[in-house]
């Protein structure tokens, strides 16, 4: 079985580092980007199995990023998980409306994170 590749997009180095730690410990290969634009750049060159993205980011925010991904020819079935601290659900709804597959609530529990990924990735 090949290693699953995860693209993590967040402007917080702390969150990127924690995701990297959790995901690589779980056997994923982790790619990183610091905003939506960088995320798109990565997706142009690399193929990934799942994307985890923050919403509030400079340059290009997560909502815009998801829209762009979904509008691109070969990424319609790429699972995209939204990282959100919002419990008030509005960001989540926006993310879903833009084409997000699911969400992860920060602060995330490592086990939960992995199980959520498995819910959206083969």
């Amino acid at each position: 079985m090949t290693t699953l590749r995860v693209l993590t997009v967040d402007d917080s180095r702390t969150i990127l580092a924690m995701l990297h730690h959790t995901l690589s410990n779980a056997g994923f290969e982790v790619l990183q980007a610091e905003d939506g634009q960088q995320g798109l750049d990565v997706l142009m060159k690399e193929s990934v199995d799942v994307v985890i993205t923050d919403i509030n980011m400079p340059v290009m925010d997560g909502i815009e990023f998801i829209r762009h991904v979904r509008a691109t020819g070969n990424h319609q079935s790429l699972p995209i998980l939204i990282l959100t601290t919002e419990t008030s659900q509005d960001k989540r709804e926006l993310g879903k409306a833009a084409g997000g597959t699911g969400w992860i609530v920060k602060p995330f529990d490592p086990e939960k994170l992995i199980s959520v990924i498995h819910r959206v990735v083969h």
Binding site: Q37, D41, V59, M60, D61, T87, S88, D90, L94, A98
Partner: peptide, 25 residues
């Protein structure tokens, strides 16, 4: 738990393209 007041806030946030200060690339 969803307060209606959040909805108008959400819309501009979704539309708002944020060409921030950070240099790309």
């Amino acid at each position: 738990a969803k307060p209606a007041a959040i909805a108008p806030a959400a819309a501009p946030a979704a539309e708002g393209e944020d060409h921030g200060t950070r240099a790309v690339g």
